Simulated assay, not measured.
Amino acid sequence: MQKLGGKMAEWTGILYGFYSNKPINEVFSLLKKEMGKINYQSNYYSAMDETSLFFFKDKNMFEHHLNNGYNIDMDGMGCFSVEAKNADLHGLATLFEYEDKSDFEPYDINLNFNNIFYYVLVLPEIVESSKFCLTLYNEFKKILNA
């Protein structure tokens, strides 16, 4: 739960996690440039070992977010954010898809990465139910892969 305006609010937003070797400052710079093309502005936040960019179209959208959390407005758009931090990744994962292909039986792979970056894209809706969110999700993946 997060406290907004003196009252408790339910957690909102759909979280999508990504690991990447692309540095945070580069990702944030490219994302701000792309979102500027659709007239979104951003606020930068930093606390302890995490940084984030919070995106909104205008003051009304920002204030609506403060009162209602992440949501899609009448125009099918809404606020979103990206949280980022340096991370290590040591684990075991099952590979179901590789380079957009899934024509093989899933198998386990070991992941051992030091000093990479972890990103959380926070969207107002799931990508399957919102064209706007799907566009943001795909744009974020494009930036990470550029």
Rank of each mutant, 00 (worst) to 15 (best):
L15F: 12
I143N: 04
Y107M: 09
S29K: 14
F132Q: 11
L53R: 01
E105S: 06
D73P: 10
K7I: 11
A87F: 07
I116Y: 07
K37R: 10
M77T: 14
Y40S: 03
K101L: 06
S129N: 15
L121Q: 03
S29H: 06
G78P: 06
Q41V: 13
V120I: 14
G13K: 03
N114D: 14
T135A: 14
K57W: 05
F132P: 09
G76V: 12
A87I: 06
Y98P: 01
K7Y: 07
Y98M: 10
V127P: 05
L121Y: 04
D103Q: 02
L134I: 08
F104T: 08
F56N: 00
I109Q: 04
N25L: 08
E26R: 04
K7H: 05
S42H: 04
N43L: 15
P23E: 13
E63F: 10
A87N: 04
K7N: 08
I143F: 07
N71V: 03
M77G: 00
G36S: 08
N110A: 12
A87E: 13
E50M: 15
D49L: 11
L15V: 09
Y45D: 02
F18L: 01
M48E: 14
I109C: 08
N145S: 14
A47Q: 15
N67Y: 07
E128H: 12
S129H: 12
F56P: 01
N60M: 09
D58T: 13
D100M: 00
A93W: 02
I126W: 05
P23S: 04
I109N: 01
T135I: 05
G76Q: 12
E125M: 12
K101R: 11
N39K: 11
E63R: 04
I126T: 14
K32W: 00
D49T: 13
C79M: 01
K59W: 08
Y119P: 03
N25C: 03
F55W: 00
L30V: 03
F132T: 10
K57F: 11
N115M: 09
N21P: 01
G36A: 01
